[in-house]
Design a protein around this nucleic acid. Structure first.
Lengths: 234, 234
DNA sequence: CCGGCGATTTGCGCTGGCGCAAATTGCAAG
DNA sequence: CTTGCAATTTGCGCCAGCGCAAATCGCCGG
């Protein structure tokens, strides 16, 4: 792990409050790995030998059910941890992680975690903060699935992606990695058909522009309106 | 916290691997609180002043959405931790917790957490294991909501409750606290009407017996079949 | 023993969104 | 440029499950 631009890394929120010397010691024990698009980073049920920090690219975390369904748990953006099973006392990964685009990751052997946690309390605290927010996300997701219609869920999903990985272009905000209707369907618990219909409708209204594995949100504001529509029941 | 039967407490999985002396030090810093049925243990958005261990009773953890929906996140059984926001770096509780039956809880001030974590590594590890399994649960829940029909979700919910809080009776296995159709609906993302219809149907088939705020699972095996039915798609 | 109220049941009609299937399109390799 | 394949679009029919509403039922306080 010699030649990594440390200035890039030290700004990450995972390393908040960590002395530079400590940061060096942490980073020096990581391996840097390139993972080409569509290759796995780690796999469900596999022994959790490492935990990771995504430096570049995007990773899709997916759970497969025994009966063949796939549910996308989340997308990981640069700067985020993943595969931190070891911090939660698990010995296997709970999901599949595949590169949604070419990626660069740092990988630490899992057995380093206890040492890290003891030696670098801030690192541990930051990690658990991440866990906490993922738990929040998961619950938020359950709530969405329980209370919202498909249209709103898809709108929310797009907005989330935009926030996470949006890149300004002249057309609007582009989701910065290849994403198919099927992928969006797996995020929102619907079918690619329904997603396609929604995107077509939104495209007609000028809310988005989309093509093969590509979505540009033209009018985030109006999409927010769609996402919040149909409050009812109050 | 003088007079608590420590033998009861020391067996809890949260305290696995903790020396008795340490256990004493931990417990001696807790307050024991009685909470009557339907009273809150802690509330969403409120400052997370304490974290808790449920000793007796049952607690329902519920999230309220701004638009008035309520989604039940989980039920807590005796021996489980709750309100551990502080371990995840949160300063407020993420949900409401209300006593589903009269309860006894131990409460520790949140500011004790960092000390505990540092002084009793096993306690910390056990806690994070709990967090890990809750994250699992939440994801499992998302997957259920994405891939299963209402009937299967309700069946799963009942089985979960049975596993958590089932009590053998001559009729079958009773869910050991008052639970309404509405409550089950909030656990499964459906309406009390649909839950009522399902329970009625199952009652006709002899799978369950149910009454006002009361459910007895007569034939868990056959309920499991219902829960797994309709695999399809493979 | 008698209201009164919250919980539950049940009927009925409607519809969001899925399943199926066929047509079309855009990308990429040769 | 051509061919092949994967991604996408779109039409059509159907049904699980919700919304609404009315009727019952069972428990608790007085």
């Amino acid at each position: 792990m010699a030649s990594l631009d440390r200035s890039l890394i030290s700004g990450l929120s995972v390393f908040d409050g960590i002395a530079l010397a400590d940061l060096d010691r942490i980073i020096s024990q990581a391996r840097s790995i390139r993972i080409p698009r569509d290759q796995p980073v780690f796999e469900q049920e596999q022994e959790a030998h490492s935990f990771f920090l995504l430096l570049d690219g995007h990773v899709r975390v997916v759970k497969s059910t025994p009966d063949g369904h796939e549910v996308t748990v989340r997308y990981i953006s640069p700067g985020e941890l993943m595969g931190i099973a070891s911090a939660l006392g698990r010995t296997t990964y709970p999901a599949n992680a595949v590169a949604a685009a070419d990626c660069v990751v740092l990988a630490w052997p899992s057995q380093l975690w206890p040492t890290f946690a003891a030696s670098f309390p801030s690192f541990s605290a930051n990690t658990y903060k991440v866990v906490g927010s993922r738990l929040q996300d998961a619950h938020a997701r359950v709530i969405e699935m329980s209370t919202e219609q498909v249209e709103q869920r898809v709108a929310h999903a797009l907005l989330k992606l935009v926030k996470q990985s949006g890149k300004k272009t002249e057309e609007g905000i582009l989701i910065d990695f290849p994403i198919s209707r099927q992928d969006i369907a797996e995020m929102t618990g619907t079918t690619l058909h329904t997603v396609s219909r929604l995107l077509s409708a939104w495209e007609d209204q000028g809310l988005v522009k989309s093509g093969r594995q590509r979505v540009v949100v033209v009018e985030p504001h109006r999409l927010v309106v769609v996402a919040e529509e149909r409050g009812s029941k109050s």
